[in-house]
Simulated assay, not measured.
Amino acid sequence: MLTVDFERLGLRPGERVLDMGCGAGRHAFEMYRRGADVIAFDQDADELDGVRDLFVAMEQEGEVPDGAEADVKQGDALQLPFADGEFDRVVAAEVLEHIPADIQAIRELVRVLRPGGTLAVSVPRWFPELVCWKLSDDYHDTPGGHIRIYSDKELVGKVVGAGMGFEGKHHAHGLHAPYWWLKCAVGVTNDRHPLVRAYHRLLVWDIMRRPLLTRAAEAVLDPVVGKSMVLYFRKPDAA
């Protein structure tokens, strides 16, 4: 399930890219499949072990173009272990809402991006996220959970304030917002509730099959209740 639009990001084969806060690696895998030189970065060693294993499996199965490379790196988002301007593209998907010092993390993303490079940032969208917070304290009041709800104005301001130019935005995962509202209403951990199980089967079917019905539904729902807000930025060219 991809959140970032790589056409809008401008990703091209052979470029060096960073997936900061990669989690299970969904965006890193797609960028690798598109021929990029990928670094999947996270603080969770167990997650990175799984990402590394799948990188190897993708190469062995011939799912990536010749010359594409991928690796993992563990570390702190507030002190990225990379040189200034090292990456052509940077992705930070669904991670900033977890980081208390988000401005410092944003500055690090900008620092490691080359002049002229592009950055995609996604976070939970303000209204769908607010509904979840209102319905359930357990949704966000957990160690490592969401600590803030961004408006588009706030996040754009923080990234532009770090030296980037705003390029545009879109919303994604309109089918997922009602699913999380339902989970919050019946209990976030109550995965055995019949309505939750039924909705989860629908989402799995959508992810695996991408049928015309759900694609049309998301095209209608994304602008209204899309669960994720995706913002695109460009770093000014060097003088």
Rank of each mutant, 00 (worst) to 15 (best):
G174D: 07
G144D: 11
A36H: 12
Y199C: 11
T189V: 09
L11G: 03
P124W: 09
V90T: 00
F82K: 07
H170F: 05
L231S: 03
V225T: 06
G50M: 06
Q79H: 08
M58E: 03
I147V: 13
H173M: 02
W180D: 05
R210Q: 12
K227V: 13
K134G: 12
I207R: 13
E59P: 11
R107A: 09
G187W: 14
A185K: 08
R34G: 06
A93E: 15
A93Q: 15
G144E: 07
P13N: 04
C132Q: 15
V123C: 10
L221W: 07
R26P: 08
V188C: 02
K158R: 14
S151M: 06
F233Y: 12
F6Q: 00
R114N: 05
G144K: 12
L182Y: 09
A217H: 05
D138E: 03
D152P: 04
G85A: 15
L18M: 13
R114C: 04
V95Y: 10
F55V: 15
L135S: 12
V220T: 02
L119T: 07
M31T: 02
H176N: 04
S136W: 06
V156F: 12
V17F: 00
L48S: 14
A162M: 13
V230W: 07
E30Q: 04
V51Q: 06
K158C: 08
A92L: 08
G10Q: 12
D152E: 09
G14Y: 00
P81M: 06
A185T: 07
G21D: 01
R16D: 09
E59V: 10
L113M: 11
L2S: 04
D84C: 14
I39E: 07
L155D: 01
W205E: 12
V225P: 01
G174V: 03
P65Y: 02
A70W: 01
V123H: 09
D152F: 05
A70K: 04
R12C: 02
G25L: 11
C184M: 04
V38Q: 00
M229W: 11
L54E: 11
L109V: 11
V225C: 04
K235T: 01
E7T: 10
H98G: 09
G85V: 14
V4F: 14
L182A: 03
L54Y: 14
C22I: 11
A162R: 12
E154G: 04
V225A: 06
E129M: 10
F82Q: 10
K183R: 15
E108T: 01
L175A: 03
R52P: 02
P223W: 04
D49P: 06
E108G: 03
S228A: 00
I207F: 13
E108Y: 03
D76I: 05
D152Q: 12
G145N: 04
G62E: 02
V131G: 03
Y179Q: 11
V204L: 05
I207V: 15
G145Y: 01
